[in-house]
């Protein structure tokens, strides 16, 4: 299926969706959002791209096999736990640093790393499933 309207719209919406997904991701710590929702929005961007331009182009755009992405995601999520272990706390205990950047104190901690893992797993998993379904019909 080739639709000029969809393709043109996708070119505009695709980067917006990606930015929005990152916004959702960082918003997640104290407000609704986070790795899971951000990941779904991010996956939606690529799914839209796949519908408009086909899965082959989308795979090239993604550069990494979605299944491998799931692996990296799991590894990141585990890493956040290992950091707590190395710090001498129980597994998954939050570890925080508070660097001051441009006069603002930032709260950076292991939950962020865990959420990056979740984000990657969600994007990878969703895309692996949807690509497989798309390619089955063709």
């Amino acid at each position: 299926m080739k639709s000029v309207i969809l393709q043109t719209a996708t070119r505009l919406i695709f980067p917006l969706l990606l930015v929005f997904s990152i916004f959702m991701f960082f918003r997640g710590h104290n407000e609704p959002g986070g790795g899971f929702i951000g990941g779904l929005v991010g996956a939606a961007a690529f799914v839209l791209f796949a519908i408009a331009f086909g899965t082959k182009v989308t795979r090239e755009l993604l550069r990494i096999d979605p299944r491998i992405m799931v692996g990296w995601g799991l590894l990141f999520a585990l890493l956040s736990g290992f950091i707590s272990m190395w710090a001498g706390d129980a597994f998954f205990t939050g570890q925080w640093v508070f660097p001051v950047l441009f006069g603002n104190e930032l709260h950076i901690g292991t939950p962020l790393i865990f959420d990056i893992g979740v984000y990657l797993v969600v994007v990878g998993f969703t895309l692996a499933v949807i690509f497989a379904l798309e390619e089955e019909t063709n």
Partner: peptide
Amino acid sequence: LIPILTASIALIAFN
């Protein structure tokens, strides 16, 4: 942790 770590490394080596 060992099996899940193994699984994620095996996933990264998927190909």
